[in-house]
Design a protein around this nucleic acid. Structure first.
Length: 876
RNA sequence: GGGGGAUUAGCUCAGCUGGUUCAGAGCAUCUGCCUUACAAGCAGAGGGUCACUGGUUCGAACCCAGUAUCCCCCA
């Protein structure tokens, strides 16, 4: 047999992924004999390519799904993509621009044709990439948020919520993205710290020549939209301005001075210019004081003709220019630097303009309440739970959701305008005509008389229906799939979309299924580089996931990502992690090579009973521990448990214990147990490392046509008799081995130089029962017992026993004495502290009996050890 | 400005109900080994004032108060 000493994943991975698909292992259908286990993928943008965040997120989902599948559940992982309205439209617009085509030259239909063409070409890439990671999605269920069925779901919900009065149309202050030329929701706005300038402008007081009111503003270009200057009524500096008017600098228009306690006296000069069209707070102030609104900004962020000055200039250019002009006019008192915040668009990064605009909104208050309750009472559990607080804060302060977008790529709003300016909301154009005729009383109204709203809906207005719509729960609310697979079990996503998406899915679930959409939400962290910086194209600090898979294997990458990724914590990615993952694959591969190479000889006696029962106890304990970790969504801990079991207990200890001498056969019983253990380990590892485990599963034995580790039953923990004793005894035996090895290292003896061991102990069985193991792992040629150690020997003490290794010519008596004395000193110190504790009356009164018993045991152990050490010193 | 979280070994993090020789794990580091499964490996070792200051308790990494620093969310 010739197996390479290193595992090479490349061919193996492609082969098994294909076989799994051929076998249909990932397909799920309602099965009353099985429990459903459902996960819906957070649909990546169609524009997307796989990045490290997807790798982490989808690895976690796949681990959960694969384990559930092995547990005998009907595991259903629904994949799909999101049409990502604004992001995709921006991408298509940019692409067309490269081809010399401007969006404005196209009709809506032409543009959408281009966009769909683009989507068909690139939209599936990310899903193909997920296959390389090993994602066990049911690909037959792949959905797209803009496909006909899902679009229909969106429209139905819109119509329904409109009819319930939860969706309304109105003029409100919205976040305007001048780059995307669309309104966006509050959640799509990102606040950024910037170093800004504060301009101090002089407003001349009307009728009092030479008197000025100085106003501090960061946006001097908006003075043309000013309708008042506000000061605090309690501010003595401005009391004399009651009823006064001031003149806008440069422009000369007169505006009133108003008094309102809203104005902070400490900020700037205590005088605030009021610009209702371009600031939310100013808008509210304007409404309160009944002031007009002057909107001087065009949709693209340039100044419009209402500005009078700087018309056509971009807002930032105008700011520079007006500062200069004010300076020249002597109306700029000073400019100061100050730390400020600007609101930017999540998608286009453009600086947001607050803008008064006619949009569609959804009332959130009514839906938020039940969605908050289910999280508060743990019907939906957040992992880690610290996110509950954030969730509560958001839900209690939720504002209405602006759902219309001035874009083409997305679901067009099903509102139809009549010639008289009124509108109807209907699922289809025919319905709309029907309603329009009814509403207007004009039976002659034709379809061509109606004009559908130009806007599309926010992308999240389709995503929030995802757990229901992927099972066609709107079109056909009582179908077998939705009844079986909904509610889903676990959702894995990032905390950045807790409000965008998670909260709203809960609302939709409660509204349309009267049931939460999932029971657990696992919130991943952000993948950062080793220095803690976010991964970004600009920094070039993000590895290409597909390169990583090619280099380290999908299994290596998956385990690498999970080694250091507790829920909710950011993952500091370092190539060392995937190296560790790859090394682990290799370790497993070599363990397999060893076992595979063994020849069984049925005539040999079963000599490894101690090792076999010990490893079984270890294995069972590890299964219990893993199940517990999984229960608590501690994925990296579950991985670490199996990692240590495989590497330390199975490879470093167990295999070394049972390994026959080179080119010698092994007894059949041991081989049988060992192979069974290896199979169990493969099962436990499979969710983390699907490819190598499948490969080894098939290499290890002849398998039937449907016998794959992918569908093998998840191991059930059993409780072996006397497990605790088995483990404790082996620990003691291994401590002897460790003692021997430490002596080898100290004395610089090679690992193979045969040594002899002399034991002085009250528990000789601990040595005789494990003598084979001690000999093998310690390279000991002979074990004997004595009342005192040979003169020229190194000794070590374990519990109350003393062990000697005769080493003629290697002994430094002074060093030996010093070492033993140090150990003795520590043991005595420990004994004293325990004695003191036990001597404390209050402790004796208050401590629980178990604790007291343990302390007494500690004292006894310490005294035995001290006695042994004293003996050893005497013997020197 | 409001709210939340964190601070434990060089790094990333566990530490559950206050009590086990409780101060841990992985990685990294150091020393020695190419020992017939694996140098992507083996054996061994070192390394911490549990942020700081008080308090509660027989007993505190853990509970309480305050301080400092960092992170996140919201405004």
């Amino acid at each position: 047999m010739s197996l390479a000493t290193t595992y090479s994943p490349t061919d193996v991975e492609a082969k098994w992924y294909q076989r799994w698909q051929e076998q249909g292992f990932f397909k799920a259908k309602p099965n009353p004999r099985k429990k459903p286990y459902t996960v819906v993928i957070p649909p990546p943008n169609v524009t997307g390519v796989l990045h490290m965040g997807h790798m982490l997120n989808n690895t976690i989902q796949d681990v959960l799904v694969r384990r559930a599948r092995m547990q005998g559940k009907e595991a259903c992982w629904v994949p799909g993509t999101d049409h990502a309205s604004i992001a995709t439209e921006a991408k298509v617009v940019a692409l067309l621009k490269e081809q010399g085509i401007s969006k404005t030259d196209l009709t809506r239909e032409q543009f959408l044709a281009h966009a769909f063409e683009w989507k068909d070409k690139y939209g599936g890439i990310i899903l193909e990439q997920l296959k390389q990671l090993g994602a066990s999605c049911d690909w037959d269920r792949t959905r797209f948020t803009m496909e006909p069925d899902l679009t229909e779901a969106v429209l139905r919900v819109f119509v329904d919520l409109y009819n319930k009065g939860l969706i309304y149309r109105g003029v409100r202050m919205v976040n305007w993205d001048p780059e995307g030329r669309t309104a966006i929701s509050d959640e799509e706005v990102i606040a950024k710290d910037v170093q800004a300038k504060m301009y101090y402008l002089k407003y001349a007081v009307v009728g009092q020549e030479g008197q000025f009111l100085t106003v501090a503003t960061s946006r001097p270009e908006t003075i043309m939209a000013d309708v008042a200057v506000a000061v605090n009524p309690n501010d003595p500096r401005y009391a004399h301005l009651t009823g006064a008017k001031v003149r806008i600098p440069l422009l000369g228009r007169e505006i009133p001075v108003i008094f309102d306690e809203y104005v902070s006296m400490d900020f700037g000069t205590g005088a605030l210019k009021v610009t209702p069209a371009h600031d939310l707070n100013d808008y509210e102030l304007g409404v309160k004081h009944n002031l007009p609104v002057i909107d001087i900004l065009a949709d693209n962020g340039t100044l419009n003709e209402k500005a009078v000055l700087y018309v056509g200039q971009d807002r930032f250019a105008a700011r520079k220019q007006i500062a200069k002009d004010l300076q020249e006019a002597g109306l700029l008192e000073k400019v100061e630097e100050y730390a400020s915040i600007v609101q930017t668009s999540e998608r286009t990064k453009a600086v947001i303009e607050p803008k008064l605009s006619l949009q569609w909104f959804m009332n959130m208050e009514q839906m938020a309440k039940p969605a908050l309750d289910v999280v508060e009472n743990d019907t939906v559990k957040l992992h880690p739970p610290k996110f509950k607080n954030m969730y509560r804060a958001w839900m209690e302060n939720v504002r209405d959701w602006c759902i219309s977008r001035q874009l083409w790529w997305g679901q067009q709003i099903p509102a139809y305008y009549l010639p008289d300016g009124t509108f109807v909301v209907a699922l289809t154009a025919e319905d709309a005509l029907h309603k329009a005729r009814e509403q207007s009383g004009n039976a002659e109204l034709q379809a061509s008389d109606l004009r559908q709203d130009e806007d599309v809906l926010d992308t999240w207005f389709s995503s929030w229906l995802w757990p229901i719509s992927v099972f066609d729960g709107f079109k056909d609310p009582d179908n077998a799939d939705i009844n079986y697979f909904y509610p889903t079990n676990d959702l894995v996503t990032g905390p950045d979309i807790l409000f965008f998406w998670v909260a709203r899915m809960i609302m939709a679930g409660l509204e349309y299924r009267q049931e939460v959409p999932f029971k657990n939400v696992y919130l991943t962290g952000i993948v950062r580089d080793a220095q803690g910086r976010k991964m970004s194209k600009q920094l070039g600090n993000s590895p290409d996931p597909l390169d990583l898979i090619a280099q380290y294997g999908a299994d290596g990458v998956r385990t690498g990502m999970l080694f250091s990724a507790p829920a909710g914590n950011d993952l500091l990615y370092d190539v060392k992690l995937v190296e560790q993952g790859r090394n682990f694959s290799n370790k497993l591969w070599n363990a397999f090579r060893l076992v595979k190479g063994w020849e069984a000889d049925a005539s040999l006696p079963f000599v490894n009973e101690k090792a076999v029962t010990w490893f079984n106890a270890k294995l069972q304990a590890a299964i219990v521990e893993m199940d517990d970790h999984f229960e608590k969504f501690r994925m990296s801990d579950a991985l670490m448990t199996i990692y240590k079991l495989v590497w330390d207990d199975f490879c470093a200890q167990y295999l070394e214990m049972v390994k026959p001498a080179y080119q010698h056969p092994i007894d059949a019983e041991t081989l049988r147990h060992t192979t069974a253990y290896l199979e169990t380990l493969l099962k436990l590892l499979h969710p983390f490392m699907p490819f190598i485990t499948e490969e080894l599963w098939h290499e290890l034995a002849e398998r039937g046509p449907r016998d794959y580790v992918t569908v093998a039953p998840w191991p059930r923990a059993s409780a072996p008799a006397n497990a605790a004793e088995t483990l404790a005894n082996m620990d003691k035996a291994l401590a002897i081995v460790a003692g021997i090895r430490a002596v080898r290292n100290q004395k610089n003896l090679g690992p193979n130089k045969p040594l002899t061991l002399v034991a002085k102990t009250d528990e000789p069985a601990l040595v005789t029962d494990y003598e084979g193991i001690i000999r093998k792992l310690g390279s000991i040629s002979e074990v004997s017992f004595a009342e005192a150690g040979p003169a020229a020997s190194v000794s070590f003490v374990l519990g109350g026993s003393e062990f000697f290794i005769p080493l003629e010519g290697h002994i430094d008596m002074a060093a030996e004495r010093a070492r033993l004395e140090k150990e003795l000193e520590y043991a005595q110190g420990f004994r004293d502290s325990v004695q003191k504790k036990l001597g404390n009356e209050k402790f004796a009164q208050n401590a629980k009996p178990e604790v007291l018993e343990k302390e007494r045991q500690k004292l006894a152990d310490a005294e035995a050890k001290i006695a042994a050490l004293e003996q050893a010193l005497k013997g020197l």
